[in-house]
Each structure stands twice: as C-alpha cells, then as structure tokens.
C-alpha cells in the first residue's frame, strides 16, 4: 500500500470518526430531556398495600433499647478514681461507694450524692480545699467522657459554680458569640440544634453542630459546660 493510499485511509477514518462523534453529540442534544425514568419508589412484595399508599400511616418514633449497664467515670477526692459499671438508674452515691468512698479531704457538702446519673457520665468530686479558697464553692460535676468524638457516644451533664464557663444548653446567641471561635452563624446553629434535638448531653455533642470540629471543640472546652 502506497504512502498516499495510507494517508487517504487515515483521513477517511478521521472523517468517519469526526462524523460519528458529531452524530453522538447531535443525538444527545436532540433527545435530552425527552425521557423520564420510572420513579425509584417502586415497592415490591405484599407488605405495603395500596391502602397504605393512599393514607400513609404516621411514622412511628423509633425506640432505642437502653444499655444493659452504665459505664461511669469518677475522679477527684474518692479513694479509687476510675471507670465503673453500674446498673441503669444509679445515683452518685452508688458510684462513690464503688470508688471506695469519699476521701477525708472530699468536699462532702458540695457534692450531691443523690444526683441521678446517666450512661457515660464523668463525675468529679472536688476536694474541700477548693471550697475554702474559692469565692464560690465548686460542686461535683459530671462530664461526658473525652473519648467521645464524632462517633457521638453517650454523654453526660455537668454541674459547676456560678462563675463557671458558659452553659451551652441555656446560653443565648449573644453569650455563645462571646466564646472563642464562635460567630453569629455557629451560635445560631448551636441554638437551633438545641431546639431541634433537645439539650446537649455532653460537651462532645457540640461536634454534632455544623461548623464545629475537634479543633474548635478543643479551643472551647475550657470555656463551656453542659448542665
């Protein structure tokens, strides 16, 4: 096959190729928007009848099985601080008992031993010294475990003194905006999250708010509290 013939063949293929590509483009442009796929809502099987389609029954609120036992963390003026497992419904005194009881220097007045607990709580028992020194006594506080993170595990509640950091469950937009790294947008998101999903169970629950990540949470940790 001569050079000219080869070139001619190449050019023929090239022209055919261009024609095919142009035809493909023309086909898609001409027919676009002319077809609608069947709705993806086809339901198979007898479980859902036509009656249900006509008058849909209200979606039941899901119920969640409670954990078989609570995992709790106790620190501060107890004999054996650490993580303990207690039956659901336990109170602070039970946790303190499991931790060997209060140390002699524990501030037994500021800790509410009858305080109801929740799964994943962190209870801190302050020493009496801090009560003497501080203008406001610092009662026992319960916090969520720091291991929580984005997975959103169980949380807790915190009880602190009056001059303590901002309570994210009661703070207004203005108060939240005073916090480091919180602007009007995130403050509004926190308040909206609170009103939609109920109070925050732990500081780590803030990770559920759009715009707050581990970095911002770390910056906020010492300035906020959950009651």
């Amino acid at each position: 096959m001569g050079w000219n013939e080869e070139k001619k063949k190449s050019l023929t293929f090239l022209a055919a190729g261009v024609l095919c590509l142009a035809a493909a483009g023309f086909l898609l442009v001409t027919f676009s928007g002319r077809w609608k796929s069947p709705p993806s809502g086809m339901v198979a099987g007898p479980a859902l009848s036509m009656k249900q389609t006509e008058t849909p029954s209200p979606v039941p609120q899901p119920t969640f099985a409670p954990p078989a036992e609570w995992v709790l963390y106790v620190t501060g003026a107890v004999r054996s601080p650490g993580v303990y497992r207690l039956p659901p419904g336990a109170r602070a005194y039970q946790l303190v008992e499991r931790a060997g009881g209060l140390r002699p220097d524990a501030d037994s007045v500021s800790i509410n031993l009858a305080m109801p607990l929740g799964d994943g709580m962190h209870v801190h028992v302050p020493a009496a010294l801090s009560v003497v020194k501080g203008a406001n006594p610092q009662p026992a506080r319960a916090e969520a475990p720091r291991t929580n993170g984005a997975a959103g595990e169980a949380g807790g509640r915190t009880i602190r003194a009056a001059d303590a950091p901002v309570d994210i469950n009661t703070a207004t937009n203005g108060e939240l905006e005073q916090l480091p790294g919180i602007g009007p947008k995130i403050a509004a998101a926190i308040v909206e999250h609170r009103s939609t999903n109920g109070p925050f169970r732990s500081i780590e629950d803030l990770l559920l708010v759009k715009g707050i990540g581990p970095k911002k949470l770390e910056a906020l940790r010492n300035s906020i509290v959950v009651r």
Binding site: L14, L21, A24, L27, K36
Partner: peptide, 22 residues
C-alpha cells in the same frame, strides 16, 4: 440529561466508533 436509553446507547456506540476512527 434525560435522553432515552436507546439514544444514549446509540450515542455511546457512535463515540466508540468515532474515537477508534479518530
């Protein structure tokens, strides 16, 4: 883009042949 399946299949075949030719 809402083109019927037959048109999409045909366009795909044309692109195949077109690129091979090109």
């Amino acid at each position: 883009a809402g083109a019927p399946p037959w048109a999409s299949v045909l366009a795909a075949c044309l692109v195949f042949v077109g690129l091979a030719g090109l």
